[in-house]
Design a protein around this nucleic acid. Structure first.
Lengths: 218, 218
DNA sequence: AAATATTTTTAGGTTTGTCTAAATTTATTT
DNA sequence: AAATAAATTTAGACAAACCTAAAAATATTT
C-alpha cells in the first residue's frame, strides 16, 4: 500500500505520541501535525478505513499492527537520513532533523536498503534514538530499574528483584506484574521516590526502595 | 518563491522540450508530464501568472529567464543525486533516474550544497549530461561543426571557418549568422549532407562541404 | 446530579491538480 | 478559399487535505 506524505506524517506522529501515552487523542495529534481538530477527524476516518488505526468515534486511538509497521519504516528512513546528513555530509546536529523530515518520504525501498548498507547498518541515529532494522526491530535498551529509566516513555515490567511476600503484596495493590506497561513521570531527588502512571489507574508514587526492585525494558 | 512538486515537474519538462524545440506546445508537454491537455492549460495559466513562462493563448510557450533558472536548479539536483546514487550507493545505471525524480524535489538548498561538496563538485552526471553549477552555468561542450554535433538539440552558431564571399552569400540565403539558433535534424550518410531547422524558416539541407564550415556550441 | 468546559464530529467551503466533454482557434487539405 | 483535422481553451466535476463555525458527546466542576 502506498501512502501520501500527509498520511505518513499522521502515522509517524501517532507512533511517537503512543511512545509516551498508550492511547492518542485528537487534540494531541492536531498539535503534533500542526492542523485543526476537524482535519484530524477527516484523516482518522481515512486511516481507519485503511486499517492503520484502531478507531472508535470520540475515543482515543492507537496504531494497528500494520500501522505500527508503517510507522517504523518511516522512522527508519528518518533516522538513517539523519545519520547520513551528520556523518557523511557534515551537517550540524541541529540542522539534520528538518531535512530528514522531507527525505523520510522518499518512497524507494531500494534506496533505504543501499543507504543502510553504505552507512554500515547503524543502530542509533545522531540523537541516540535507535534505528529500526528492515523488519522494524530495534536494539532494545537492556533492562533497567525504574530509578534510572528514561522519563515519559512507555516501558514494560520485565523483572522484579525482590520477590518477598511483602513486595508482591505491594505490587498487587498497584496492579503491577510482569508485562505491565507503565510510564515513569517524575523522579524526586529529595528522597529518590518515583511517580509512575499505569493506563487506567491513578498515579502512584513508589519509594526508592520499591523502585529499585522494578526492572523494565523500553 | 516556492514551487510544488507538480509545478517543478512542468518547469523541468518545458526546459527539456526547449532543448530540442525552441518553443513548446501543449500536446508535447501533456505527453511529457503525463496528463491531459486541459490540465496543461490550467498549469500554464498559473506558471504565466508567476512569470515562469512566456505565454499567449493558443501559442507555443517558452521559459522566462526566471523559469530557466528554476529549471536549472531542479536539473542540478536531479543530476547530483544521480551521481550520488551511482557512485556512492552503488546503484546500477538504469535504476538511478527514477529515484532521482523523487529526490530532485527535496527543497533544502543547504542539502544540495553539501551534497555537491561531498561528491567533489562533479561536472557531468552518469549519463554524461552536464551538471549546472550553483549559478546555473554548466561546462559548455566545446564548439564543433554541425557534421559532428548531437542531433535534435538546439545549438548556436559560434564560428564560420570559410569566410569566402561565396560562403557568406550562401549563409545569408539561409539566414544563418553568428548567434543563429538551429537544430540538426538529420545527417545522411550517403553524401554527408545535413538537414537543419531554424525557427520560423523552412528546413534546409546543407552539403557536407558547407556543413563542415559551420561551428556551433551546445 | 447539574452546569460548565473541553473534545470530537459534522456541515459546508477552499485550494491544488487532475479529469471529460464541448467549444473555439489554428493548421492542413482538398 | 472552403472543408476538415488537430490543438487549445473553457466549463463543470472530482479527490485530497485543509479550513471555520456549529452541533454533539464526553469530562470536569461545582
Amino acid at each position: 500500500m502506498k501512502f501520501s506524505t500527509s498520511e505518513e506524517n499522521y502515522i509517524k506522529c501517532i507512533y511517537h505520541l503512543q511512545e509516551v501515552n498508550e492511547g492518542v487523542s485528537g487534540t494531541q495529534l492536531a498539535q503534533a501535525v500542526n492542523t485543526k481538530a476537524a482535519s484530524v477527524t477527516d484523516m482518522l476516518r481515512k486511516l481507519h478505513l485503511k486499517k492503520i488505526i484502531n478507531y472508535r468515534p470520540y475515543k482515543n486511538f492507537t496504531l494497528t499492527e500494520t500501522g505500527n509497521k508503517i510507522a517504523l519504516e518511516i522512522i527508519r528512513k528518518h533516522r538513517l537520513w539523519e545519520y547520513f546528513l551528520l556523518n557523511k555530509l557534515g551537517f550540524k546536529w541541529e540542522e539534520i532533523h528538518e531535512i530528514a523530515e522531507e527525505l523520510e518520504h522518499i518512497s524507494s525501498g531500494a534506496l533505504i536498503h543501499k543507504l543502510d548498507e553504505y552507512l554500515g547498518h547503524p543502530c542509533f541515529d545522531p540523537h541516540g534514538d535507535p534505528i529500526p532494522d528492515k523488519h522494524g526491530k530495534f536494539k532494545i535498551l537492556k533492562q533497567a530499574s525504574i530509578t534510572t529509566l528514561p522519563l515519559k516513555k512507555i516501558v514494560t515490567v520485565s523483572s522484579i528483584k525482590d520477590q518477598s511476600i511483602q513486595m508482591l503484596e505491594l505490587l498487587k495493590h498497584y496492579n503491577i506484574s510482569l508485562g505491565t506497561k507503565m510510564k515513569v513521570n517524575k523522579r524526586f531527588d529529595f528522597d529518590g521516590s518515583v511517580e509512575i502512571k499505569i493506563d487506567k489507574q491513578p498515579l502512584a508514587i513508589l519509594s526508592e526502595q520499591v523502585a529499585k526492585n522494578i526492572f523494565c525494558i523500553a
